[in-house]
Design a protein around this nucleic acid. Structure first.
Lengths: 339, 339
DNA sequence: GATTGTCAGGAAAAGCTTTTCCCTCTTATG
DNA sequence: CATAAGAGGGAAAAGCTTTTCCTGACAATC
């Protein structure tokens, strides 16, 4: 690996501050002050140095700068999800937040493998990252990374099992509440809940939130929540089953858009007119699924990008010495389409 | 931004090689040699140093190491796509490839904004990345990043307009050929092509590949290629139209899985039995779309992950002084499902 | 016994920027 | 005029690891 052939093929030697200083006829220290607005220099000298830097296309070597300051303006993102459905908007939010602090992110994919995760962690710490964000694909609590880390950590979407860590999570029950209230507000009274596997915390939370929200309105589900899998096939199957047992259903809250799309297809193909006879609400606001469904799905957006953004902000604050441990809940919002 | 509050909340002072050396009773230089297998040391000394490093949990500060060696073992990935459908598998491939070289990637999202892109470029160069990968979302050629970059660059998926740059691209015509051959092999003779916007190079290339592949078999399309958009709605619409003008169609090659799914729904709901009467082939192998379609879609996988992998390999080679300029084509492969 | 060679490890420089401390020159003040 | 103060800029250290060069000690050889 990595012979020592010339590592700079095209663009000549990199210019250093010494080159700028020489061209401007000052010492490197002075050049540094001129460019960074420090020290006590004549305005004319500053101009001269700036001109020299411009002319040479000087960009400070941030490696040297980091070595001195102990700060790299770099964070590591460890995602357990192979850049999938969930981590993508989260990462975008993180990058947005980090960008304003002139920080930049290393991306590591642990693929749910603890060994891999520790390996990435070590590599990131060697590189002196200023902080870490751990993004998961499931809302179930996860093991903390490791005790006594030398840098702050923020968990995004998948909370840390240690409540003293800083975690940013979605509001699962609030999402269910939004969905239920929307269904009721649009006149639905006989509501069912079709969702994913019972082994997923998000399924269970959303189911609990659903019954709670109905209870607040003195209502209840027309049947027990139907747990299955996060697939369209399950949605279609469950829709058919639901029609057999409860043909009078007029609203379905689905645990995800994928399930909701299956339910919509299942109902429509059984001759149910949507959204006239039955209203459907999904969760995720996953464009390719929700918009292509017939009718386009009304759905609850969990605010993944906002989660990433908050995680980034909290990490920056922690790096600046203002940690905010605990669970931070980002609220969901309803996206009304035609279903 | 960034006060100088204590940047290390939890884990005490970072241990340096000097700490290890002191504990082992040697000089820092000797400790370095011991840990890196350099120099001429007694085996017992090496052991002692290794034990001390272990005990203290020492991890070398790669910032200092980089400053000395001029190599950071870091690359920058600039994607024009907000971590979307295409960049995701590409990035995974890149990470796979880079991982074996113990390299790690900075991720930047330019959101198709040249200003943003230049900004990211500058930040990455300041950080002394060893190389760059530019990943696009469209196959259309793009402007090169900049002339005379001090590090090697590999373009992935979206080739550089400069043919002397190193680009890794998908085989659009080959993909069309695979699809057509599959349709013909499964007995289809009256084949149509429904695809995305004519303004996209990938639509045009796939259409050309389709007619070429048919020509090689002394066949031709039953109608001109139908250009539209990358949506299910277009697929459904085009399917209906196709049935009106060519009710005898028995095979459709679609420019993407999303379109193919629309076509499948459109045909099925018009009473066409799939795949008995009409065979459908898509492009992308996008799980959530292709697998949920009825029937699950046979599709051409463009090998995005492989593109990322190749790009990573080529970049590593270039960093090691073995550049391979030109266009590198990654071949597609057929994924046979039930359509 | 003196010289040469080898082995083990130490000392110091290098890599690039920033920052602290200090020096010199000018100007103002008593 | 002499001293103090301030302005402007230089010199050098610091940050951490690696690498080169060098020194000492010991053994072997003549």
């Amino acid at each position: 690996m990595t012979q020592q052939a010339d590592p700079r093929p095209a663009g000549a030697r990199r210019v250093g501050i010494a080159d700028v200083a020489a061209l401007a006829g000052v010492s490197p220290g002075t050049a540094s002050k001129a460019l960074n607005g420090r020290g006590n220099l004549r305005e004319e000298t500053r101009q001269r140095v700036r001109a020299a830097a411009e002319q040479l296309g000087f960009a400070p070597n941030s490696v040297a700068r980091s070595l001195l300051s102990g700060r790299t303006f770099t964070v590591g993102i460890i995602t357990t999800d192979s850049y999938g459905r969930f981590s993508i908007p989260i990462m975008r939010g993180v990058e947005d937040s980090l960008g304003v602090g002139e920080m930049i992110a290393f991306l590591c994919d642990s693929r749910d493998d603890p060994i891999r995760e520790q390996h990435h962690l070590r590599k990131l710490l060697e590189r002196q990252v200023d902080g870490l964000i751990v993004a998961g694909r499931r809302t179930d609590a996860r093991q903390p990374l490791r005790d006594k880390l030398p840098v702050p950590v923020v968990y995004a979407f998948a909370r840390s099992a240690n409540p003293d860590d800083c975690s940013v999570v979605s509001d699962e029950r609030g999402a269910a509440k939004l969905a239920v209230e929307h269904l009721v507000k649009t006149g639905r009274r006989r509501i069912a809940h079709i969702t994913g596997p019972h082994s997923h915390a998000s399924s269970r939370e959303r189911a609990i939130g659903t019954t709670e929200a109905l209870a607040e309105l003195s209502m209840e589900l027309i049947s027990e929540p139907l747990f299955g899998s996060w697939t369209e096939t399950w949605g279609r199957f469950a829709a058919a089953q639901l029609l057999r047992t409860h043909p009078d259903v007029d609203g379905v809250f689905c645990g995800s858009d994928v399930v909701a799309r299956g339910v919509a297809d299942g109902l429509r193909e059984a001759g149910v007119s949507l959204p006239t006879q039955v209203g459907i609400v999904g969760v995720d606001n996953w464009g390719v699924v929700a918009e292509a469904a017939r009718p386009p799905l009304t759905t609850v957006d969990l605010g993944l990008e906002e989660i990433g953004h908050r995680a980034g902000d909290l990490l920056l604050a922690a790096i600046d010495g203002h940690p905010a441990p605990g669970i931070h809940v980002v609220s969901s919002h309803l996206v009304v389409r035609e279903s």
